Every structure is written in C-alpha cells, then in structure tokens.
Amino acid sequence: MLESVTLTCPYCGEDFETRVDASAGSQAYVEDCPVCCRPIEIGLDVGVEGTIVGVHARSDRD
C-alpha cells in the first residue's frame, strides 16, 4: 500500500512529495532528492496496525 508523504530535503531545504510503502513494516532506504539530486536516507516507522507512525529524511552528515 503506497502512501504519499511530503518531506524536506536536508541538503537544499526544498519540500518534495514521495510515496512510501508501509506494508513492509519499518524500514530505511536511500532516495535522491528530486530538486538537488543528493542522496537522502528516508526512515519509515510503521506501527503494529500497519499505519505510518513517522517518516524522516536524513543526510549522510546526520
């Protein structure tokens, strides 16, 4: 189940929309910023009922 979320790039500060898949549970993966093309680590926290509890974006400096 894909859901749209809005994140802020930790490098350029621009907001962007991406889709996350909560069906696989909590996870972390790398996606390039669509504005500045820098790699962002996206962390997805999923609760016991399969709902998204939190989403965060980090740079390689964090």
Results as ranks from 00 to 15, higher is better:
Glu17Ser: 07
Val5Asn: 03
Ser26Glu: 02
Glu3Thr: 09
Val30Pro: 01
Glu49Trp: 09
Thr8Met: 05
Val20Gly: 01
Arg19Trp: 13
Val48Cys: 07
Ser23Phe: 06
Asp32Gln: 04
Arg61Asp: 14
Cys33Phe: 04
Cys36Glu: 08
Ile52Gly: 04
Pro34Tyr: 09
Val46Ser: 05
Thr8Ser: 08
Val46Phe: 14
Ala57His: 13
Gln27His: 12
Glu17Cys: 04
Glu14Ser: 08
Cys12Thr: 03
Cys9Gly: 01
Asp45Lys: 11
Ala22Arg: 11
Thr18Gln: 06
Tyr11Glu: 03
Glu41Val: 14
Phe16Lys: 01
Val48Ser: 15
Ala22Asn: 07
Asp15Val: 02
Ser26Met: 01
Ser26Ile: 02
Asp60Ala: 11
Ile52Met: 08
Ala24Pro: 01
Arg58Gln: 14
Glu31Asp: 05
Val5Gly: 02
Thr6Asp: 10
Val48Gly: 13
Gly25Gln: 05
Glu3Trp: 06
Met1Gly: 09
Gly47Pro: 03
Gly47Arg: 12
Phe16Cys: 01
Val55Cys: 08
Ile42Glu: 03
Arg58Pro: 01
Ala28Asp: 12
Cys12Trp: 08
Val48Arg: 13
Arg38Ser: 11
Arg61Asn: 14
Val35Thr: 11
Ile52Ser: 10
Met1Asp: 11
Asp32Pro: 02
Ala57Thr: 09
Cys33Lys: 02
Val53Thr: 14
Asp21Ile: 00
Cys12Leu: 03
Glu49Gly: 10
Pro10Tyr: 13
Glu31Leu: 06
Arg58Ala: 10
Val48Lys: 14
Phe16Ser: 00
Glu17Pro: 03
Pro39Arg: 09
Asp62Val: 02
Phe16Thr: 00
Thr51His: 15
Ala24Lys: 15
Ala57Asn: 09
Arg61Gly: 11
Arg19Gly: 06
Gly54Pro: 00
Leu2Asp: 11
Val46Pro: 05
Pro34Arg: 03
Leu44Pro: 02
Cys12Tyr: 05
Ser26Thr: 04
Val55Trp: 12
Ile52Phe: 10
Phe16His: 01
Ile52Leu: 13
Gly47Cys: 08
Ala22Tyr: 07
Ile40His: 06
Asp62Leu: 03
Gly50Pro: 05
